[in-house]
């Protein structure tokens, strides 16, 4: 049975090294290597890798620009980093050996590496960054007065709406973190179950499904973050337009 909480593999002083933390470090090293390699080989006439990265970055930038317009430059780094980070975290859980190679503690298998997204600390951390960054950007772009005006008003109806907005901001964090955590954790459970039933061939369709789920979840998290940022960085009277565009 897979546990909700990540397992401790080792200690550095009082700091515990968990199997999900190892996965996050693996993902970090992949992303940093990718960035450094692409930067080193950067040329006006792109190679295959640069072409792929350019395609991704340009596509995401244009998407951000089409929704948030003038604030695209500020929102875009969060949008694409959330996508890349979550995508690789999700897919890293599908690498053979991740979640399956480990040691036994009694009858329970403790994997050495476990998908980072199946650790609520990771998904909640990402959701918190998303929420805090959204509000910081909103204050920077709109100003503190306009930002607070969204939540507090003398008008009782608007004040009530403001309170609902505050509650919705909290639920955004919970929904973002638990959606990602739930999907990836459930995927792990499904894969572990199917693999324990019939080890060969049978889990392949589920693996393919998990590839799609990993992609979709990364896109959902990053798109929602980008949309929240676009809405909160737009003056109140223009919000409906942004909502319309993001719906399209």
């Amino acid at each position: 049975m897979i546990s909700f909480s990540p397992e401790v593999i080792a200690h550095i002083g009082s700091f515990k090294i968990t199997n999900s933390l190892l996965d996050i470090l693996l993902v970090d090293s992949i992303l940093i290597t990718l960035a450094l390699v692409v930067k080193k080989r950067l040329s006006l006439i792109p190679g295959l890798l640069q072409n792929a990265v350019e395609f991704l970055i340009e596509g995401f930038y244009n998407l951000t620009e089409s929704i948030s317009n003038k604030n695209a430059g500020r929102i875009f780094p969060f949008f694409i980093t959330f996508f890349l980070f979550i995508l690789i975290v999700n897919w890293s859980g599908l690498i053979p050996g991740v979640g399956t190679i480990g040691f036994f503690e009694g009858k329970k298998l403790v994997p050495v590496i476990r998908s980072g997204a199946s650790d609520l600390n990771v998904t909640l951390g990402l959701a918190l960054v998303s929420a805090v960054a959204t509000h910081v950007l909103s204050i920077q772009i709109l100003g503190i007065k306009s930002y607070l005006g969204r939540y507090f008003s003398i008008n009782p109806i608007n004040l009530f709406i403001g309170i609902l907005e505050i509650i919705s901001e909290i639920t955004k964090v919970i929904s973002l973190s638990f959606r990602l955590f739930g999907n990836i954790f459930a995927g792990e459970v499904v894969l572990a179950t199917t693999s324990s039933m019939i080890a060969f061939l049978f889990p392949i369709p589920f693996l393919l499904l998990e590839i799609i789920v990993g992609f979709v979840q990364a896109l959902v998290f990053s798109m929602l973050t980008m949309t929240f940022m676009a809405i909160l960085t737009t003056p109140h009277h223009e919000v409906e337009t942004v909502k319309e565009v993001s719906r399209v």
Partner: peptide, 9 residues
């Protein structure tokens, strides 16, 4: 861990 994940990201 939560703080570590935030800083890491």
């Amino acid at each position: 861990f939560l703080a570590a994940q935030v800083i890491n990201f």
